[in-house]
C-alpha cells in the first residue's frame, strides 16, 4: 500500500484512502515520539530541503523536527537571507539545490500554486507547507488527526470553521479533508470574508451567526484574520470583528454543551480568540502542535518510501 500521489501538494489531490493511511501511520509515529529515543532510522539516506519563502514558526520547526526524528539530513533555506533577494528565480534556486543531490522539498510560498508549478519541473518529491491562499495540507491532516484522537472518528463530526475563510489556506485544506472523510462542515464569518459560491463548490454550509454555529458544532476551528493578505478593508475594525466573531468564555458558557476549540496558530489574542478560551480546558491547540510532528513524519515517510525507478 502507498499514497496515490507522488507529491503532497494539497488535500484536493488525495483520496480518502491516502488520508486514512497518513493518519494511521501518524498514530504509530506518535508512539515513537513517546519512547526514550524519539528517533527512527527510516530516512537515513534522504536529504530534505525546507524552502521557506514566507515566515513561519510552527510549521518550520515542526517539519525540521519531523525530518530529524526520521534521521533525514536537513537543509534550511529562508528566502530573505538568500540569493532570491538578488533576483534569482524560484526554479533556478530549486534546481541549484537539487543538483547537490537533495531528495525532497518542503516548500512554503506566498504565491498560490508555487509548489504545483515546481512539481511540473523537478523530479524530487514536494510537500506543500502552505502556498498563498490555496492549501496547507499538513495542517489539515494534523487537525484531522487531533479531531480523530479526541472523538475517535471523523465521519459525522460537526466542524465549524470560523474566521477569515477567504484568505485561509488552512480553511480550504480542512474543508477538502473533512468533506472527503464524511464530516459536516459549516464555515462562519462576515460575508465579506466568505467567498461566494463556496457552499455549492465544496458542499459545506455557510453561517453568518457565530452563536448559532457554535450551538450546532462539536469542534470550532478558529482562524486568524490574515491582514497581510487583505489589500482592501473587508470589515471596519478588529475590535468590531471581535465583538461579532471573537470567541469569549461567556459565549461558550451560554451554549448548553461543551465544544472543542482548535486554532492553527499564530493566535491574535483578543481578536478571534480570547485568552481564557485559548488557554482553557476545551482548547486542544497545543495538542495540535504536538500531533503536527507525528503527522509530518508520516507524510515524509510515505512520500520518501515510494519505489525507486529502475
Amino acid at each position: 500500500m502507498k499514497l496515490s500521489a507522488k507529491h503532497l501538494l494539497g488535500i484536493k489531490h488525495l483520496t480518502p484512502g491516502d488520508i486514512q493511511l497518513i493518519l494511521s501511520t501518524a498514530a504509530q509515529f506518535k508512539e515513537v515520539l513517546q519512547r526514550p529515543v524519539k528517533k527512527v532510522p527510516s530516512l537515513r539516506d534522504i536529504t530534505i530541503v525546507n524552502l521557506f519563502y514566507e515566515n513561519s514558526t510552527r510549521t518550520r520547526i515542526s517539519f525540521e523536527l519531523a525530518e530529524k526524528r526520521l534521521s533525514a539530513d536537513v537543509l534550511n533555506f529562508t528566502a530573505s537571507a538568500s540569493s532570491a533577494a538578488k533576483g534569482e528565480t524560484l526554479l533556478d534556486t530549486v534546481n541549484n539545490i537539487l543538483s547537490m543531490k537533495v531528495d525532497m522539498v518542503v516548500m512554503r510560498h506566498s504565491a498560490s500554486g508555487a509548489p504545483h508549478f515546481l512539481a511540473q519541473h523537478i523530479p524530487a518529491a514536494i510537500i506543500n507547507a502552505g502556498d498563498g491562499i490555496n492549501e496547507h495540507p499538513t495542517q489539515a491532516l494534523l487537525d484531522a488527526f487531533s479531531m480523530q484522537e479526541k472523538f475517535g472518528k471523523l465521519e459525522g463530526l460537526k466542524v465549524a470553521i470560523i474566521g477569515d475563510i477567504m484568505h485561509s489556506r488552512v480553511a480550504l485544506s480542512n474543508m477538502y479533508l473533512l468533506r472527503k472523510m464524511g464530516a459536516e462542515v459549516t464555515v462562519v464569518g462576515p460575508p465579506t470574508l466568505i467567498p461566494p459560491y463556496l457552499a455549492e463548490a465544496l458542499d459545506v454550509r455557510v453561517e453568518y451567526n457565530l452563536v448559532r454555529a457554535l450551538k450546532w458544532c462539536d469542534v470550532a476551528n478558529v482562524l486568524r484574520i490574515q491582514l497581510e493578505r487583505q489589500n482592501q478593508p473587508l470589515f471596519s475594525s478588529l475590535r468590531e470583528y471581535n465583538l461579532a466573531y471573537g470567541i469569549k468564555q461567556s459565549t461558550l458558557q451560554r451554549l448548553d454543551k461543551e465544544i472543542v476549540i482548535m486554532h492553527p496558530g499564530p493566535i491574535n489574542r483578543g481578536v478571534e480568540l480570547d485568552s481564557d478560551v485559548a488557554d482553557g480546558p476545551h482548547s486542544i491547540i497545543l495538542q495540535q502542535v504536538e500531533n503536527g510532528v507525528a503527522v509530518r513524519m508520516a507524510a515524509l515517510y510515505l512520500l520518501a518510501g515510494r519505489e525507486v525507478e529502475g
Partner: peptide, 12 residues
Amino acid sequence: FYRDDVRKSLHI
C-alpha cells in the same frame, strides 16, 4: 521504521 528497504518498498 527500522527496515533497511524503505526506498525499495513501503511497509505499513
